[in-house]
Amino acid sequence: MVDMNLEVNIIPVSDVDRSKQFYADLGWRFDEDAAPADGVRIVQFTPPGSGCSVTFGQGITAARTGSLQGALIVSDIEEAHNELVARGVEASDVWHGAPFPAEVRLKGPDPERTSYGSFFSFADPDGNTWMVQEVTTRLPGRI
């Protein structure tokens, strides 16, 4: 089978400049801000260490603002949480156990720091939600 690399996720936003500032404040790499046609603006950022970028702007998606539910993988959940909070992000507390539904979440990181077992979440100004998950050892077949 031909490799299929996920390289861009499109985020629906209501205020392009506000979103641009938010993702810059996260410390994500700014890649582009282009207006290739009337009524079209494309802004792209890439999270540190990621092969996948996010794109938002004007005239690029009909998705409802705030409808994105994305996931980020980190090697240290507490370090990532502390870094985002220090950058002014309103993040949930760290939890472990199942990520869904919220009622089954257990407080704090996984006591054994099991890979795929600890999480927190945050949202951008439009309510697009990012779940952050700790992965220290990949399952077989995963990069």
Rank of each mutant, 00 (worst) to 15 (best):
residue 124 D to L: 07
residue 66 G to P: 09
residue 101 P to F: 03
residue 106 L to I: 12
residue 98 A to F: 09
residue 109 P to H: 06
residue 91 A to C: 15
residue 132 V to R: 08
residue 53 S to M: 06
residue 49 G to K: 09
residue 38 D to H: 07
residue 90 E to L: 09
residue 99 P to Y: 06
residue 108 G to W: 04
residue 138 R to L: 14
residue 77 I to Y: 08
residue 123 A to C: 13
residue 62 A to F: 04
residue 105 R to N: 08
residue 27 G to H: 10
residue 123 A to L: 02
residue 65 T to Y: 03
residue 3 D to S: 10
residue 90 E to T: 13
residue 103 E to V: 11
residue 140 P to S: 08
residue 44 Q to F: 01
residue 40 V to H: 04
residue 81 H to R: 13
residue 129 T to F: 02
residue 99 P to L: 04
residue 8 V to I: 15
residue 98 A to I: 04
residue 143 I to D: 13
residue 96 H to V: 12
residue 100 F to H: 12
residue 39 G to Y: 01
residue 95 W to T: 12
residue 90 E to S: 13
residue 103 E to F: 08
residue 126 D to F: 10
residue 21 Q to H: 12
residue 119 F to Y: 15
residue 9 N to R: 09
residue 39 G to L: 03
residue 68 L to K: 08
residue 49 G to E: 06
residue 49 G to Y: 05
residue 17 D to K: 11
residue 60 I to V: 04
residue 43 V to A: 06
residue 143 I to C: 07
residue 54 V to C: 08
residue 91 A to E: 00
residue 57 G to F: 01
residue 64 R to I: 12
residue 6 L to C: 10
residue 20 K to N: 12
residue 86 A to P: 01
residue 108 G to D: 09
residue 101 P to T: 07
residue 27 G to Q: 11
residue 54 V to D: 01
residue 40 V to R: 13
residue 97 G to V: 04
residue 23 Y to F: 14
residue 22 F to P: 04
residue 8 V to A: 00
residue 79 E to I: 08
residue 137 T to I: 09
residue 79 E to T: 14
residue 70 G to T: 12
residue 141 G to K: 08
residue 64 R to C: 03
residue 35 A to N: 13
residue 58 Q to R: 14
residue 91 A to P: 00
residue 27 G to V: 09
residue 51 G to R: 13
residue 140 P to Y: 07
residue 79 E to V: 13
residue 38 D to W: 03
residue 127 G to E: 09
residue 5 N to P: 02
